[in-house]
């Protein structure tokens, strides 16, 4: 197809798999954290906020290495997972998804949090006087209003996980057919003699994917924003 080799298409497929799984598994967590930060007052809120934003300022390699320490076969949590559930995350695409998710997490939380902060909590109060309980009030009022923020967050997050390199190569390594995403394949191609044409095709794939995600994000958020805010 378009002269792409099976290795390149495999990298594309792994990238999509890693990113899509990341989005769907991180979504509830991002919602929960955004809600805590936007609506609740608690001790250690500033610390939680800082920890979440850490990946924005720390080199991804550092995140990858921390993940190795935490989730590696001999890691604090990793050895427990390995011994009790026979789950190994290092060198697997699931590991790549975790690494990418941690790095991109702040991009997911921020837009949702901002959207939640923009919703008047008294609207839920109004919903309650109309017969909705707290859960129904959130689902029927707050959630639809913050939907543009959720979509923006999801797509920013998706695009960021597509491009993740440092944490992924450190924690999940660069294994063709398992953890070799587009950027990792591109890196490999630039290291191999005569890999220029492969590299160019991978660059093209990456750009198309990222542009597609950003345009979709823009379009979706404008559409939902119009519905919610009317302008």
């Amino acid at each position: 197809m378009f002269g792409f080799s099976s290795l390149e298409l495999e990298a594309l497929q792994i990238s999509l798999k890693v990113s899509l799984w990341s989005v769907s598994l991180t979504l509830p967590l991002a919602m929960g954290v955004a809600w805590l930060l936007a609506r609740k007052k608690f001790r250690g809120k500033a610390v939680l906020n800082a920890v979440i934003h850490l990946p924005l300022v720390v080199p991804p390699v550092v995140i990858g290495y921390l993940l190795l320490i935490l989730l590696g076969r001999k890691g604090i949590l990793g050895s427990f997972l390995n011994d009790w559930f026979d789950i190994g995350l290092v060198f697997t695409w699931q590991g790549a998804a975790i690494a990418a998710s941690v790095v991109a997490f702040p991009l997911f939380v921020r837009p949702i949090r901002q959207a939640l902060e923009g919703v008047d909590p008294r609207l839920e109060e109004a919903a309650i006087t109309l017969g909705a309980d707290r859960r129904q009030a959130f689902l029927a009022v707050t959630l639809p209003i913050v939907m543009p923020g959720v979509l923006t967050g999801a797509l920013l997050f998706f695009a960021r996980t597509l491009g993740e390199f440092g944490a992924t190569i450190t924690f999940a390594a660069n294994i063709p057919g398992e953890t070799q995403t587009l950027p990792l394949a591109l890196y490999a191609a630039t290291q191999a003699p005569g890999g220029d044409s492969i590299a160019l095709r991978l660059v093209f794939l990456s750009l198309v994917l990222a542009m597609g995600a950003l345009l979709a994000s823009e379009w979706l958020s404008r559409k939902t924003h119009f519905k919610v805010h009317g302008s």
């Binding site: 109004a126 109309l130 017969g131 519905k227």
Partner: peptide, 20 residues
């Protein structure tokens, strides 16, 4: 009786219509 089961209508000064 919790507020959502009271069936007491409330018209707020600031309307609080649902924007979506």
């Amino acid at each position: 009786v919790p507020p959502e089961q009271r069936r007491i209508g409330y018209v707020f000064q600031d309307t609080r219509l649902f924007p979506h």
